[in-house]
């Protein structure tokens, strides 16, 4: 543990403010491991988050960090990547942030396909605001606000991401660290927008989706699953019943924002490009 964030050599972690037993405690070391195993330089990593418990992650790991507004993690993240493609940009934040307040950005950034990674800590409850229904809470889930049980259908984020055209869609479980590290590494290496929905228990506010209930139900996809087959991906993503499939549902390469953009494709990063003043003079002259 370190006092201050000036370590540029390794992905050290810091003392957190999470509740004891929080699923976030399992996810943070996986992130640390994935980043270290990928041999990335901390100064080339930018962690971006919105607001929430999971969104504190950038505060707890030795990398560059941008903790913006609730629901608004994706816009600054993709813009930072557009500004400097040398950065490895990772959004790490909760499902309320990603799918609730930030739902519009979620859909449209799948369309943009900027090369960033999106780790969603999905505990099916709002933690920071002390236990209201989240976009993925199950029907009937009783909370301090949904006093008679949640009556709104839960969102299926992996299915939505597939439908919106994401090229990398995965689901993981905070209790299966080995799988999580591997998925994280694959997602970070994937050239394009990669979504990993990470199921995790909320020890304080979610008494329905407990560690035990996840542990009993998660079922890693078998080797027979072909992640390049869209229909298999949809089938896995929409599977209902007792078992919750985990793993990489879908992975295909697609043109990214950068490869399609005339200013970014085959050019140096935007931050290194300069516009010669003579070009501005040309424009001025065009109005004469």
């Amino acid at each position: 543990m370190n006092d201050h964030m000036h370590q540029t050599q390794s992905f050290d972690t810091y003392e957190t403010a999470w509740c004891p037993g929080c699923g976030n405690f399992s996810i943070l070391p996986c992130l640390q491991k994935a980043l270290t195993q990928l041999n990335l330089d901390p100064h080339h990593v930018l962690m971006v988050a919105g607001i929430g418990q999971a969104a504190k992650t950038p505060q707890y790991i030795s990398a560059n960090g941008f903790c913006g507004l609730h629901g608004r993690a994706l816009p600054p993240a993709i813009a930072a990547k557009i500004a400097n493609e040398k950065l490895t940009v990772i959004v790490e934040t909760g499902e309320g942030d990603s799918y609730g307040e930030g739902g519009n950005h979620f859909i449209h950034n799948i369309r943009r396909n900027v090369d960033i990674t999106h780790f969603v800590h999905d505990n099916q409850i709002y933690g920071l605001t002390k236990g209201q229904a989240s976009p993925t809470s199950e029907i009937g889930h009783v909370t301090g606000v949904q006093t008679n049980g949640n009556i709104n259908q839960p969102l299926n984020p992996v299915f939505l991401a597939l439908a919106a055209g994401a090229g990398f869609v995965a689901r993981a479980f905070s209790g299966d660290q080995k799988q999580l590290v591997q998925i994280m590494m694959d997602a970070i290496q994937y050239p394009g927008y990669a979504l990993v929905d990470i199921l995790q228990p909320c020890i304080s506010f979610n008494k329905v989706n407990t560690f035990a209930s996840y542990k009993d139900r998660v079922q890693p996809l078998t080797d027979s699953h072909d992640p390049t087959d869209f229909s298999q991906a949809v089938q896995a993503a929409t599977q209902t019943g007792e078992q919750i499939p985990t793993g990489i549902f879908y992975r295909v390469e697609k043109p990214t924002f950068h490869t399609r953009h005339p200013v970014l494709a085959d050019h140096s990063p935007l931050i290194e490009q300069t516009c010669d003043p003579s070009r501005i003079k040309d424009l001025i002259q065009s109005f004469v």
């Binding site: 994706l74 816009p75 993240a77 813009a79 519009n104 200013v263 490009q273």
Partner: peptide
């Protein structure tokens, strides 16, 4: 001029993108 002009999904995204860049 070598600039990126991005049409955002809404003005909230627009300003948050500008801040991120």
């Amino acid at each position: 001029c070598g600039i990126v002009v991005e049409q955002a999904e809404d003005e909230i995204a627009a300003i948050n993108m500008a801040i991120g860049a």
